[in-house]
Design a protein around this nucleic acid. Structure first.
Lengths: 328, 328
DNA sequence: CTGAAAGCGCTTACAG
DNA sequence: CTGAAAGCGCTTACAG
């Protein structure tokens, strides 16, 4: 039950491997190969259930039609959905994905990047946890096709797709004010240096009516539950009356903690960055700043493919998409 | 900035490619290659930033260290978490993953399977939407390494990992009874033929005190919201007082719909198969039948690897893991 | 209109 | 202790 190769088809038909290869790659007409011969080849390929060996092909062509994807955590709904969007677009364009998680561990991220390159991916889509572009400068120096998503770096001439986080955060704070909130707190998350988080903090600061009343709480990414509980304790006696959560994980922990304490969500106005299903399920519902996740994924894939097909001419672009306030 | 190859190392050191290959693959000692020569080779490989071409290697060896994973929908938390578990175990064992979604579309599933095999994956982990084993009989006939997860087929001698769905559903119903529920309804989902769903229905039936009072509602998988709304309308005037949801998607839709109607969850006792975060966030919390997702993923990967390393001796196993009642 | 040949980068018997 | 050679399966100039 050995797999059929080009040679098997060629021999059984009495033609050359070259001819078979040409026909099967759709270059039969272009090379003026006899229609009947072409049909015979295709027929036989079907008959032998021929499956081209992509590794021989990749070796020869120098490309593998595989894109690497590295995200912090695919079981986080935001990244799960992003990966799904990337997968759909990649699948449509004939590319496969290799997906890996870093869990915000920069050592693992370094290892994953080199592992993936070892696997000869054609390009990489990266939601990085690095604190500076230095860590990936090496990649771009060697001209390796890279697209940053979600988290980007300043002054870095590499393809990227992100959202206007500052603007989104502003919209969130303005929404709180419009609902009568007097003093909004920001529940932020470590590592605070990733661009998406730091920009959202900046948006919060910018939108405050009275910057002196800014209140920023740092929630550690590896103990969100505990961090939120501590924050609530700490704020017990302060006159905060609204919370802006910089991401959905914090908002989820907050909802849970409030309900455990018997405090209704009605008492505290909450809004979150990232719109997830839960916000529409809990009672009362939670408003959110939604990211165009599908478009982020699609754009990232297409930037990469453009780079592949256009090695010389491709100019790195920093795409910034808008967020939407989902009012509930 | 060309990538270094074995040949580059060999030439710059005045040794053969064979020697370099042996050393770099850790067979230097076994083949009695001079320690100093070995050190020189490793040194030079580092210096040239040598990355072996996996496709040349794969072509030569016949293996690619890549596992295909096909699930219905990775943005569904259950499958997202399963993929994460699979990824972790695979990563530890030196395998890469190619993940794809079927969205319950059997045509897409067929195409994906052949696509992945075209990409020369070493083996496949499959949560299938097929209604019978016939669709994949071909795969196993050719002896292709396959592990079914979550959804399995009867009388099919292939590796698989699933949970005791019947038993889990019984536990759910018994829990409802213990909480004073008199007449539990089962919210089931199409396609109902997948084993996980049909077994949960069977568990529900088996556990009913009065089988005549069985009430099974079919929710279409592509319109869960609407299906749940209709179901609630239909049940308006019946004396049901508890709901068993066969999966988390249905439970989420139910929670949302109840809260939209202003009915508290307290009025209707709900329990769901699959334990997800939301159940711990809503108020009141929802009890659930939890699957050992991490163990499912890990077991699947290891069955596959055992099959790889043990081509002849490997005996297909049907692993069935236990569920846990998470009472809230 | 078609074929023979080279070569992608690697590993592995084989030979000495 | 090390090297020369074959070959994995494919594609692509080149030649006729």
């Amino acid at each position: 039950m050995k797999k059929a190769s080009l040679k098997d088809i060629a021999e059984s038909l009495g033609v050359s491997k070259a001819l078979v290869s040409l026909v099967l790659n759709g270059k039969g007409d272009e090379r003026g190969i006899n229609k009947q011969t072409q049909e015979k080849v295709r027929q036989k390929a079907r008959e032998l259930n021929y499956i081209p060996n992509q590794y021989a092909r990749g070796l020869r062509i120098g490309r593998t039609n595989t894109i690497g994807v590295i995200v912090p955590d695919i079981s986080n709904v935001f990244y799960g959905t992003l990966c799904k969007a990337i997968e759909q677009e990649a699948y449509d364009k004939g590319y496969n994905l290799i997906i890996s998680n870093t869990y915000e561990d920069v050592q693992k991220e370094k290892k994953l990047i080199s592992d993936l390159i070892n696997r000869n991916i054609d390009g990489l889509i990266l939601a990085s946890s690095f604190d500076s572009k230095n860590e990936i400068q090496g990649l771009t120096d060697t001209n390796f096709p890279l697209v940053l998503v979600d988290r980007v770096f300043d002054d870095f001439d590499v393809d990227s797709v992100s959202v206007s986080n500052i603007d989104g955060a502003k919209k969130a704070i303005e929404f709180l004010y419009s609902k009568g909130v007097k003093r909004p707190v920001c529940f932020s998350m470590s590592p605070v240096y990733v661009s998406s988080i730091s920009e959202r903090i900046k948006g919060y600061m910018d939108a405050l009516k009275d910057p002196n009343k800014a209140k920023l709480v740092q929630i550690p990414h590896d103990d969100i539950e505990g961090g939120v509980a501590n924050a609530l304790d700490e704020l017990q006696n302060e006159d905060y009356d609204g919370v802006f959560c910089v991401n959905n994980n914090i908002a989820k922990a907050l909802i849970r903690e409030l309900s455990m304490r018997g405090e209704s969500l009605d008492q505290v106005r909450v809004i979150s960055f990232d719109d997830i299903e839960v916000f529409d399920i809990v009672n009362p519902k939670i408003s959110a700043i939604a990211q165009p996740i599908h478009e982020i994924g699609k754009t990232a894939v297409n930037l990469l493919i453009d780079r592949f097909n256009n090695e010389e001419g491709h100019k790195p672009q920093q795409v910034v998409l808008d967020t939407v306030l989902v009012e509930r």
